[in-house]
């Protein structure tokens, strides 16, 4: 359980985030939406502990996030940032194994090897194992990094390891439609195993398809927060994005489809 209470973040004199409060519950996929520059990535970086809040608090399992030692946090929580480039020539398998570093001291255990194998299969990157990471396409790099994050949270008996957390910052930006569904579907599955999942997304239709809860930001403030059905309303979205949006319901697709509307 993560609690965000009256969070404020300023860089220099600029207010990036104002007075944001919400909570993230285990078992739910929460999606952060908002136009460019709304502060989505900054919010995720505050929740991951990379940035320190200028005001307000972020707490994880009732402890202030900054009091938890990074090594301990790394066994419970994985973060996929938008930084994929690696300049030293590591192979993909080595990159995915890095996700297991918080779990072993010198040599990977059998569990770590199993985690790497499972995560690579899950993200369809097993065939890239021995390729140098730098030589992959953007979408492939994103899948390998996603596999690394999944390996970090992998556990032998997932049903006995709840309370872990997954943070993804625009994880599907370079992926094709098949792999977008694959990764977000996996995030859903983790939520069903009582993981806390938070994803920054741009694509409203992916949000409509996979989010339980949505946090909608605009210019650093919380415009709306609630269930997907509550937040994904044409009026609210128009206020956020500045263009009219239309909500279409299809007969054989149970989620709303969002398209730009007419004036």
């Amino acid at each position: 359980m993560m609690q965000v209470n009256q969070l404020v973040y300023t860089a220099g004199k600029r207010n990036i985030l104002n007075n944001i409060s919400f909570s993230l519950a285990p078992g739910k996929v929460t999606v952060i939406l908002g136009p460019n520059g709304a502060g989505k990535s900054t919010l995720l970086r505050l929740l991951s502990g990379e940035l320190k809040p200028s005001g307000g608090t972020v707490s994880w399992h009732n402890r202030p996030l900054h009091q938890i030692p990074p090594a301990q946090l790394a066994t419970q929580r994985a973060v996929l940032t938008q930084q994929y480039a690696i300049t030293l020539p590591f192979t993909c398998e080595e990159v995915v194994l890095m996700g297991r570093y918080p779990h072993f001291t010198n040599q990977p255990t059998a569990d770590d090897i199993a985690a790497v194998k499972a995560a690579m299969e899950e993200m369809h990157v097993t065939h890239l194992s021995s390729r140098p990471f730098q030589t992959l396409s953007g979408g492939e790099q994103q899948r390998v990094q996603a596999a690394r994050v999944l390996a970090q949270l992998w556990s032998k008996r997932p049903e006995a390891a709840p309370g872990k957390m997954l943070l993804l910052d625009e994880p599907t930006s370079s992926m094709d439609i098949q792999h977008q569904q694959l990764l977000l579907g996996k995030a859903r599955k983790l939520a069903q195993q009582r993981y806390t999942v938070l994803i920054v997304l741009h694509d409203l239709n992916l949000a409509a398809r996979y989010a339980d809860e949505i946090v909608l930001l605009q210019k650093g403030s919380l415009l709306a927060a609630g269930t997907a059905a509550e937040v994904l309303q044409p009026a609210t979205l128009q206020q956020a994005y500045g263009i009219p949006l239309q909500l279409i319901q299809s007969v054989d697709y149970p989620y709303p489809i969002l398209v730009p509307g007419h004036h």
Binding site: G49, P70, A71, L73, V79, Q83, I86, V95, Y101, P102
Partner: peptide, 20 residues
Amino acid sequence: SKSLNAFSLGEAEAMHLGIN
């Protein structure tokens, strides 16, 4: 060594893997 490997992912990324 392990920390240096993780560091090649980036500073924030290494931090998320538990490295000081």
